[in-house]
Amino acid sequence: MITPEEFKSAFRLHPAGVALITADPGGSPVALTASSVSAVSADPPLAMFSVSALSSSARNLRKADSVVIHLLSADNLDLALLGAASGVDRFADESRWQRLPTGEPVFEEVKTWMRADILHRVDAGGSNVFVVTIVESSVAPDAAMCEGLVYRNRTWHRIDDSTVASMPELIGASAG
């Protein structure tokens, strides 16, 4: 088996999209930044994400019945940083978020978000894996025009038109 450091070192080089997960299990909303969000199934619409069991939000998130997954663009880097910071009130600026009619907190400046009911919670090593059923989504008409945000090697990266490569370009680059 490889060491935890070898495992982390390998995955640091794998770019991942960035999301802000919010929930309110009752009393106080929680938010955290995650790069582990994945689609599981389109029919039924299922997604998953994992959270370190050591995260300050993990205990409250395990109590939640539902979450909002905000799929962040490069314009939302400040929200990614906010969700990744420790010891801060992520909901202090009440002008940035509101509650959905179902009670979950949502940051409306995010162009794409999905409300989800938690279907399964799985303890997996030092993490909690959540499998969720997507029950509502919001995709702004201009969402596709936003530059992407990925996390790689402990650094935030912007995905824009300059990073697009076609298959022939990729094949030529690998052949040379």
Rank of each mutant, 00 (worst) to 15 (best):
A124H: 08
E147M: 01
F91T: 01
D78Q: 12
A92E: 12
V132S: 05
L100M: 15
I134C: 01
G103F: 10
L61C: 10
R96N: 09
W113M: 02
T33Y: 12
F91K: 03
D78F: 10
D123M: 09
I69R: 01
P101D: 11
S52E: 15
R59A: 14
E108A: 11
A53V: 05
D93R: 07
I134V: 03
V51N: 01
A92K: 15
H120D: 10
D43L: 07
G27W: 05
L71Y: 14
S73I: 13
A64N: 11
W113Q: 02
A64I: 12
A42V: 07
L119V: 14
V139R: 14
V88P: 01
F107R: 00
D65G: 15
T133A: 12
A80H: 08
Q98M: 07
A92D: 13
L81G: 10
P101L: 11
V139L: 09
V131M: 02
G87C: 02
S36A: 09
D142M: 00
S38W: 10
W97C: 06
L46D: 00
T33R: 04
V135F: 08
R90T: 00
M114F: 06
S28Q: 15
A144H: 15
E109Q: 12
N76V: 05
S73W: 14
H70C: 05
D78E: 13
R121Q: 15
F130Q: 00
M48D: 03
R121N: 07
N76T: 02
D65P: 01
L61Q: 10
D142T: 06
V68H: 12
L119M: 10
P141N: 07
P44V: 04
D93Q: 05
